[in-house]
């Protein structure tokens, strides 16, 4: 075992670790927002929205993330330059990078899984509470905002930690679209130094540590909130 490469490559590794965390944070936060819309659409009255949200979830849950990533990076990416005006806009430098497509793919993928979970927890909120809210004179929008969603999110909280960890474990795939995340850094070190195991062991340790850290944070968070029905 030879770990002497850590010192010369420390910046690459550190950048990679930060990028992994940033991708995780972005995709979980934005994905959760989209997931709420997807879940509400799936239990809502509009037939069109229901079918649209359901198809979205089926597509993103039924195909590998790798295919989604390549579809977005190579497929959509090849159309972007043809959209008039986009090339000159201030967004272009961001939208040219692999990391932008990686964040989009991870976000859309996370939204689909979390959307399915929230759909289930929306249906698990006791009917009586919604009826009570209605009886107290709340309009449908307010019931959703004040009672239905907060309760549903709270019921779904114990599974949320697991979803975040699954998402963390999904992030290394972004190296396949030239993103230098932590795994991408390990990949480059392997190519440079021809060491196979040591870089992989190092990044694996990082992922396990981060997983442990996430579970601890969520445990604290869950204990602070009354999650029982």
């Amino acid at each position: 075992m030879d770990f002497s490469w850590i010192i010369p490559y420390r910046d690459l590794l550190l950048h990679g670790a930060v990028l992994t965390c940033v991708l995780l944070a972005i995709s979980v936060t934005l994905g959760f927002g989209i997931a709420i819309l997807l879940a509400v659409a799936q239990v809502g009255r509009s037939r069109f929205l229901r079918i649209a949200a359901k198809s979205y979830c089926t597509f993103f849950r039924g195909t590998p993330l790798l295919i989604q990533l390549w579809l977005i990076y190579y497929g959509l990416g090849s159309y972007l330059p043809h959209i008039p005006g986009l090339r000159g806009s201030f967004l272009w430098p961001v939208m040219r990078e692999g990391v932008f497509f990686a964040a989009v793919a991870l976000t859309l993928n996370f939204a689909a899984y979390q959307g399915e979970i929230l759909r289930g927890t929306l249906l698990a909120v006791p009917k009586g509470e919604l009826e009570a809210a209605k009886a107290a004179g709340m309009r449908p929008g307010m019931v959703l905002r004040r009672i239905w969603l907060p309760r549903a999110i709270r019921i779904g909280l114990p599974t949320f930690a697991g979803e975040v960890i699954l998402q963390l474990k999904a992030t290394p795939i972004v190296f396949s679209v030239t993103v230098m995340d932590l795994y991408g850094a390990a990949y480059k070190i392997r190519q440079d130094t021809l060491l196979v195991y040591e870089p992989l062991i190092l990044v694996a340790t990082f992922y396990v540590t981060l997983t442990f850290f996430i579970t601890q944070v969520f445990k604290r968070f869950e204990n602070a909130l009354p999650t029982s029905r």
Partner: peptide, 27 residues
């Protein structure tokens, strides 16, 4: 799908076709 896509430059088509096959398998 990637080999087909990079040979023909039809990225959208072949990745969508692969996605459809995966979807068929999962459904």
């Amino acid at each position: 799908a990637r080999v087909a896509a990079s040979n023909t430059k039809q990225y959208m088509l072949f990745f969508l076709a692969a996605a459809a096959l995966y979807l068929a398998i999962t459904i």
